[in-house]
Amino acid sequence: MKVDQFIVIMVSLLSSVSLLVIVSLGLALAFGMMGVINMAHGEFLMLGAYFTITAVNAGIVLPVAILISAIAMGGLGMVIERIVLRQLYGRIWATMLATWGLSLLIVGVVQLVFGTSSNGIPTPLSTIHLGGYMLSQYSLVLIALAGVLIATTYLVFARTPYGTMARAAASLPEMAAAVGINVSRVNMITFGIASALAGLGGGLLAPLSGVSPTFGQGYIGDAFMTVVVGGASPLLGASTASLLLGGIYAGVSNIVSPVAGTLALLLVSMLVLRFLPTGLTGLWRKARQ
C-alpha cells in the first residue's frame, strides 16, 4: 500500500470516529451523568444545524455561528430540564417518552417555521491533493475538534469544582444533597452542557449535508449505538465506542459498501452487548479488578 493511500484510509477512518464522537457526546453525557436518555437528541442536533445555517445566512462567519448555536441549545436545554425532565427523575421510561414527545414537537415546529425542504451551506475550506486522492480539510478539522471536545469535557468534569459536584450528584444524589450540593442546579447545568454539545455537533455537521427537519434521524441511531456500546461512563465510553464502531463502519464501508457498514455496526454492537451488557466501560471496570 502506498503512503498516500494509507493516509487517506486513516483519515476516512478517523473521520467516521470523529463523527460518532460529535453526534454522541451530548447524549452520552446526559445518560452517564443524569441517567437521562434524550430521545430528542437528534432534534437537538437538527436545531443546532438550523441555528448555524440561519446565522451564516445572516452574515455571521461559520465558527461564530456554530458557537452561537451551541450557546442557544445550552440555554434551551436548561429550560427543558427545568420544565420537563425535573418532574421525571428516577422514572427512566417516562423521561424517554417525554423527550420523545419533545422530539416530535421540535420536528413539528421546525417544519412550520422552516418548511420541509432541505437547506444548506457550502462546506468550508478546500480540499488538499494528496497523490491521486483528495482530502477535505474540513474533515481534518472535525477530527481535531472531536479530540478537543473530549479533552475539554474531561477537564470540565475532572478538574473543575462544578465537575466534582456533578459527578457526586451523578453517583449518589441523596448524599450529594446532604453535603450541601445543589443537585437540582447541577442537573440543570449538566443537561445544559449536554444540549450545548448537541447544538455544537449539529452546527459542525450542518455544512456536510443538507439540513431538513429529519436531519437528526440520520445520526441518532449511530449515537444511541455508541452510547449503549460505550456504557455508563460518558467520556471513556463514548470515545472507546466511537473508536470501535467508527473503525468498523469505515472499514466495512470502504471494503464492501456503506449498507454493509451500517449492518456491521449493528451486529458488532449486539455482539459487544451480548458479552458486556454494561458496555465497554464494564470491560474496563472488570480489567481494573
Binding site: G221, F224, T262, L266, R274
Partner: peptide, 23 residues
C-alpha cells in the same frame, strides 16, 4: 441472554430500528 436490562433494552431496540431504517 446478554443480561441487558432496563433502559439499555429501550436504546438498543430503538437503535436496531433506526439501523433498519438506514438499511
Amino acid at each position: 441472554y446478554g443480561g441487558i436490562r432496563g433502559v439499555f433494552v429501550a436504546v438498543i431496540t430503538i437503535a436496531a430500528t433506526l439501523a433498519l431504517l438506514t438499511f
